[in-house]
Write a protein that binds this DNA or RNA. Structure first.
Lengths: 345, 345
DNA sequence: AAAAGTTTTTTACATGCGTCAATTATTGCT
DNA sequence: AGCAATAATTGACGCATGTAAAAAACTTTT
């Protein structure tokens, strides 16, 4: 890099003969400056190496152009897909996304929220940690910022906007499907890492009752808080199959990662789950994890519309931070899931 | 939140009767202030709501305490695991990690690098995009900052530190293993998204030659730049098996995600890859993707030591930014992979 | 060519906090 | 109690930019 480094706008100003305030306006929006000035600046920037200081600009602007996003896990393709759709939507709207991962730790989540506040982000989107998370963190963000909760909803929070999947619909749909084409499913719960775990369980029970079947839930050890879903599914069903129980049952797993573990347990015991073999073992999941089509057998599931959720969360946030939030009501946006019928159920 | 909001240190100073510079020192390091002052501040902070402004602090400190990380994909558990180990290591050292994902776009990668520069991050770690990425970006970062490249290495860059897996060793080891317990493997390449793709291919060929076997590579369409690895593995082998070719071959896939697609292709054609059935189809991968133990059959692979790589990258970066970089030589740290023998090969 | 309108520059102040030299308070010692 | 030594605090200045108002330069219109 041969260009001389210039550190401040002041220097740049005297280097290319354009006043500093004009430069300031140029860097915020080139169209706010006359054609001639813009050209002079542009050609000047080709001779020197200068970038406005990120912090100095952000400190003084009334709007930082940044939105903060907190997700609980990074090692989960569901959340990374969600993140991607948020980043895409935000980028299109001209916003920069700052991502923080709470690593399933309420303390980290709280710190991340404080960081966002101290950065004056224009708004924040959070996928909550779960039932061991500190709801005051969300309330505080909601009080101070345009704020949207995503994916999983603590039902005790009354004034917070939310975007997520309609689990009553999605879990209901797959429950109904399973009942229709085979034995009524047993629900294989997942570690209660978030509120969705309970919502799906409740949705399953409700649908089963509606259809006149007896719901049956294989619960989880409440101590078991870790997020190793596949391991959980494998361990529970391995144990079950070893005792020769439920060898030809239908399983609806609380999510696909649990289902992947379940598939493994089946294979380990020489069982071949599948929709095609009526009367035999069946396994289905929830989410449409990207690997579902590559499992053996391919995994039947309900897709969460990740793109729509991310897009809607950003849309709602933008509406709020642009002051278009005319009616100050809480908005809860529930998006339908779509059945993905494959081989396993 | 009942506590009154306080925006500046100045206000806080007059609110709790401690001078502003003292407050400044307290927030940087509470131990830099006398016991009595610390207590007074602490009790004061319980009565009001104040957080130092992120930008103002960062702007003035000579060191920002932040390190920037760029990864090419978010939808890949390998990179998220890497990220996690970096975050852990950095957090322990008291640094904040700012993550940016380039989404496989050189322009975004470049912009992310510029952002880091304008933020005065103390250092940067980058996992390169691949052979269509702009090497000048890395050179520029390396000139301006403590900088470490990670995971995949452009061999034309001569003065840039690197931490990654020793593919000659890792790929060599699994090639050797496969030759030892069965038919010499065919190499199923992956889309050439990064330099590792070529390194592994070269390592395979080298080892095969060493062992006196004829290497055979199933290449990729050079146009095919997308990152849908599973789909690639599935498509290529599905096609192959449909033509009744290589039905009982040994496949070494360039990474696990390709291998997962390969497993699916095998299952689709009623084939059962496995180490136990000598003489039959075998499939192995590379990386130890977290889902390997849950595939059917479980996937034999070579694990990249993600934790060690992340830790080493951070260690090296810290050494550089602390000025302990006594010998100014380029450091290339290659970490061994470990065979994970499972069912599939 | 003068008036009116537009854009740019200048000037001056603001932002929130880091930092250092100078000052003040505290402690230890006799 | 008095003094020196040490620790803590404070005042004043700096950082890189945003922003508003007033002055100056340039364009367009008549």
């Amino acid at each position: 890099m041969l260009k001389p480094k210039i550190h401040t706008m002041e220097e740049l100003s005297s280097a290319i003969g354009v006043s500093r305030p004009t430069l300031s306006r140029y860097f915020q929006d080139p169209s706010k400056v006359s054609r001639t000035s813009a050209n002079r600046i542009l050609s000047g920037l080709e001779r020197v190496d200068y970038t406005p200081n990120f912090f100095a600009t952000r400190m003084n602007r009334k709007t930082t152009g940044m939105i903060g996003v907190i997700i609980p896990y990074l090692n989960d393709l569901f959340f990374t897909r969600l993140l991607e759709s948020i980043e895409t939507a935000a980028m299109q709207a001209g916003y920069t996304v700052i991502t923080q991962c709470s690593h399933a730790d309420p303390a980290i989540e709280k710190r991340a929220a404080e960081t966002f506040l101290s950065m004056n982000v224009d708004g924040a989107i959070v996928a909550p940690l779960g039932n061991h998370s500190d709801l005051q963190v969300y309330e505080r963000l909601n009080d101070r910022l345009p704020f949207v909760l995503m994916d999983s909803r603590p039902d005790t929070l009354s004034d917070v906007d939310f975007v997520g999947t309609d689990h009553l619909q999605s879990t209901g749909a797959i429950t109904e499907y399973m009942c229709r084409v085979g034995a009524p499913p047993v629900f294989l719960a997942m570690p209660r890492v978030n509120f969705n775990a309970l919502e799906r369980e409740a949705a399953y029970i409700k649908k089963m009752n509606e259809l006149g079947f007896e719901p049956r839930v294989i619960g989880v050890d409440p101590i078991d808080k870790h997020d190793h879903f596949e391991g959980h599914g494998l361990a529970v069903l391995d144990d079950m199959f070893s005792r020769q129980e439920l060898l030809d049952a239908s399983f609806l797993c609380a999510n696909d990662r649990v289902a992947i573990g379940a598939l493994r347990a089946a294979a380990k015991h020489g069982l071949e789950p599948g929709a095609l073999r009526r009367g035999g073992l069946r396994i289905a999941g929830h989410d449409d994890y990207p690997l579902c089509p590559f499992m053996t057998p391919t995994l039947t599931t309900v897709a969460q519309d990740v793109t729509a959720i991310g897009q809607a969360a950003v849309d709602r946030l933008l509406k709020k931070l642009r002051g278009e939030n005319i009616d100050n009501n809480q908005v809860i946006l529930l998006i339908n899931g779509a059945l993905k019928l494959r081989e396993s159920a």
